[in-house]
Amino acid sequence: MNTVWSLAKVVVLEMVRRKDFYVLFILTVLLTGTAGSVNLFNDRSIVRYLKEICLLLIWLSGLIIAITCTARQIPAEREHRTIFPLLAKPVTRGQFLLGKFLGCWVATGMALVLFYLLFGLVSGSRDHQWPVLNYLQAAWLHWMMLGIVIAFTLLGSIVFAAPSSNGTISFACAAGMLLLGRHLNKVALSVAEPLQSLLYTAYFILPHLELFDVRELIIHDAGLIRWDMVTLATLYAAAYGAFFLFGAWLAFRRRPLN
């Protein structure tokens, strides 16, 4: 675990020292601030649209940070040749992948903490309510979802050589699942066999990222999610994360590094 944590720390340090996060954070602050300053029928107490915009920006930023940070890890190690001195040390390929995953996940989690603090401030300043537990649940589920995204992007970075193509494909897959995931079964019911069975299989196999998107609950003050459901969702994310990491390890463990 020491080795894995050492590798993760470098990834975290990289995110802290690069400008990506700051650009996205400032952009979120600016856009939320602009949206908040719009005069809507002279009513300053309208807040849900602001929560919606802020959360949308946070979700977009979260995906961008997670995917770009993960997609560049292994290609950059290869391009700069740092993978050679690293794997020439007593580091297994599994530890290498786990370290990269953990680093990206922790770095994204740190970014999420700041983003949700901003969200809490924006929402609280207009709404004068501080549903901390609800925000905690939302941030936690968001982080779990990004864990799945990071794991499959890591797998993608072994399959696809170019970080740009991996990033684009991963982003398209994540966005596709978030937007269409929960409708696949309904689409399946409306088509003929064998496409129906195919779609239904995909519906059950693919990770349902949209489960972790509880923005509507937050925006409309719908109350806390049952904690046992949050636990189940966490286990669901852990299972998919482990599945993709295992796939990445299978693809990477015997791959020649030359």
Binding site: V10, L13, R17, R81, F84
Partner: peptide, 18 residues
């Protein structure tokens, strides 16, 4: 086997942010 070795690869660009 790599616990007691040191390796210097050719032309490596170490983590520039460190």
């Amino acid at each position: 086997a790599r616990q007691r070795i040191g390796y210097l690869p050719e032309q490596t660009y170490y983590y520039k942010f460190l």
